[in-house]
Simulated assay, not measured.
Amino acid sequence: MCRDNVMEMPIVFLLLHLFLIFTAHAVNPGCECLLFSATYGKDYGSFSSPDYPHPYQDNINCLLYTFIASRDEIIEITFKDFDVQKSHLDCERGDFLKLFLHLERPEVNEYTPWSGLLCGGFTDIPHVLYSSGPGLVLEFHTDRKTSNASGFLGHFRFIDRRMFQTDGQKLPGTMCDHQFISSNYSLTHGRFYSPRYPSSYPKNIKCAYRFRGRLKERIRIVFEEVTLQKGDL
């Protein structure tokens, strides 16, 4: 069970011992959970590592930052500061922040696939992250080695996911193929997105976007943003 929390972070972590243990759907029964489900009229809410900006504790077994949006929203995470001790290049051991970006429900367990691991300094990480659905979880671990690292500070906000809907028609029987056909009843312009945009796209996919204009029409395509992982075409 998580306890809702969007209080000022220094107060939060002074009261951290009051939070309930997240046993029902946690990665392990020892996880503690902070729940963020509203910004209470502000443009964004804040979250941070324990004791920030002072060095965080060692031997944090599992601290979950759980963000819950409404059904038609996604979550935007913006890191304002990040300093997590880096013991290994792949961040799989030592101190790290594990990302769960693609959740339909704000729940994780030991079988939930994670999206990435973060450690190191501010220049080592992506500064902005997006969920693909209404749930996002950050899982914080530290080892037994004492560190002078200050941890992290971030902002979160909820965004209407309908802003990123492709205007074309999805072809039946396909995962992500779309067609755009000009007619008297269609818009003269529109938008198209890769799957899960603005979050990271899935692995091993192939999407086709087919555009068909009418006689004497030409099609103009403008890419506003293209970010592809090395090896993807």
Rank of each mutant, 00 (worst) to 15 (best):
S194P: 11
E139P: 00
F164M: 06
N148Y: 13
G168W: 05
R212Q: 11
S183R: 04
M175T: 13
S199V: 08
F122I: 05
I205M: 05
R212V: 14
G151P: 01
F100I: 04
R157Q: 04
P198S: 06
K145E: 11
Y130N: 03
G120I: 13
S186K: 09
V108G: 10
F156H: 07
D177N: 11
S199Q: 09
S150K: 13
Q165R: 07
T146H: 09
R196L: 12
L153K: 13
S182N: 00
L97M: 10
P198M: 03
F152V: 02
F100L: 07
R161P: 00
G135E: 11
R210L: 14
T166I: 01
H88T: 15
F152L: 04
S132A: 12
E107S: 07
S115H: 03
F140D: 06
S131D: 09
G133H: 01
S182P: 03
F122E: 10
K170M: 09
Q165C: 09
R212C: 03
E92K: 15
S186C: 04
N184M: 10
H189A: 12
T123C: 08
T112S: 15
L187I: 01
L129I: 09
L171E: 15
H141D: 01
I181V: 15
P134M: 06
R191M: 04
H88E: 15
D167K: 03
P126M: 10
T123M: 11
R210C: 08
D124R: 08
G190V: 02
C91Q: 04
D124E: 12
T188F: 12
A149K: 02
Y193F: 15
D177L: 14
S200Q: 09
S147Q: 08
D160L: 15
D177Q: 06
I205P: 00
E104D: 15
D143R: 06
G121D: 07
A208Y: 13
S199H: 04
S150D: 00
S200E: 15
F158A: 06
R210N: 13
C119K: 02
V128H: 08
F164C: 05
P134C: 01
F211P: 15
D124N: 11
L138Y: 10
G151D: 07
N184Y: 13
K145V: 11
L136D: 02
P195L: 06
T166N: 04
E139I: 02
L153P: 01
C207I: 11
C207G: 07
K170L: 03
R93K: 14
P106W: 02
G173I: 13
D90E: 11
S199E: 08
N109C: 03
H102Y: 06
F96C: 12
I181E: 10
L101E: 12
P198I: 01
H178K: 08
A149Y: 09
H127I: 11
V108Y: 09
F140R: 07
K98M: 13
D95P: 04
T142K: 09
D95L: 00
K203R: 15
G94N: 11
V137Q: 05
K145R: 08
G190R: 01
P126C: 05
C176N: 10
P198Y: 06
T146S: 10
K170Y: 00
I181D: 08
L153R: 15
L129M: 01
Q169M: 13
P134T: 03
R191F: 13
H178A: 06
L153D: 12
G116K: 07
L101V: 01
L103R: 03
R212Y: 12
K203T: 09
C207N: 03
G120N: 02
L117D: 05
R214T: 08
R191Q: 09
